[in-house]
């Protein structure tokens, strides 16, 4: 009888073990499908600091470039004409009648570069801090030396160089001396055309947009005369969305009364 009981118990134990095993398997499956399983770490941009910084800053850069392009080269222009709810900065201005305008931003390219650098600075710091934290959370020894942010507007592209030095140590040491974000944008040419227009405004009080368009095939120039004598110039690159606009007020003849 004891043997029978033993045998019965043994079968019972096996049964219990089988049930437990099935339950365990079910539990694991349930956990997995409900999302509590081991996390699958997909390859992310954080493994590549260059890509991380690029992805982190690209949108902000693009938005800033678009904003300064629509506002006459400044993020917040000090002297502007409001058109279509956009404050468009004056690049050449006179408050008088019958006088030619005075150039307001002669070093336009350098000015725009500075405006972009200043505008993205906060985001640069945030992005690098995020990068640092992401590596530290993965047990890297991280050394980050901050540096200058330099934006350079060149033919067909805008290069943003972040002279930060990042050193990562985990077993081997990797050092990144600088970070570069190139963007495809022909703001360079738009600036050159704008300066040609301004020079004509200063010399003649007006510009000949038809001639300028023929000299610069691939670009359209629109001149919009406002009631107070301000001209809004809109220079667009054909087949792209690149656009630069600014205001000018020169050689305005008042309506006699």
């Amino acid at each position: 009888m004891n043997k029978f009981i033993f045998l019965r118990n043994k079968r019972g134990q096996v049964t219990i073990f089988i049930i437990i095993a099935i339950l365990l398997i079910l539990a694991v499956l349930l956990l997995y499908f409900l999302g509590f399983g081991p996390e699958i770490i997909a390859p992310s941009d954080e493994t590549n600091p260059q890509m991380f910084i690029k992805n982190c800053l690209e949108d902000k850069l693009t938005d800033t470039i678009r904003a300064v392009s629509l506002r006459g080269g400044s993020v917040n222009p000090e002297r502007y004409f409001n058109y279509n709810d956009i404050p468009i900065g004056y690049l050449c201005y006179t408050n008088e009648y019958e006088q030619r305008c005075v150039e307001q931003i002669p070093l336009l390219r350098a000015h725009i570069q500075e405006e972009i650098e200043n505008e993205i600075q906060e985001d640069v710091i945030v992005c690098f801090n995020s990068l640092k934290e992401s590596y530290e959370s993965r047990n890297y020894e991280v050394q980050l030396n901050s540096g200058r942010t330099v934006v350079e507007i060149l033919p067909n592209r805008i290069i943003t160089r972040l002279n930060y030095v990042l050193t990562l140590k985990k077993g081997q040491t990797d050092r990144y001396d600088s970070f570069t974000i190139p963007l495809s944008n022909n703001l360079y040419e738009l600036i050159v055309i704008s300066q040609d227009i301004i020079e004509e405004e200063i010399l003649d009080g007006n510009s000949n947009v038809i001639s300028l368009m023929f000299l610069n095939q691939g670009f359209e120039i629109e001149k919009n005369l406002r009631d107070d004598g301000t001209k809004i110039y809109i220079i667009s690159e054909m087949d792209t969305e690149n656009k630069f606009q600014f205001a000018s007020r020169s050689l305005v003849i008042p309506p006699g009364y």
Binding site: T47, N48, M51, R157, I159, R161, D174, D177, F179
Partner: peptide
């Protein structure tokens, strides 16, 4: 991850 972009490219 260690590549830097040329200053003048594109």
């Amino acid at each position: 991850g260690t590549y830097s972009t040329f200053s003048n490219t594109n």
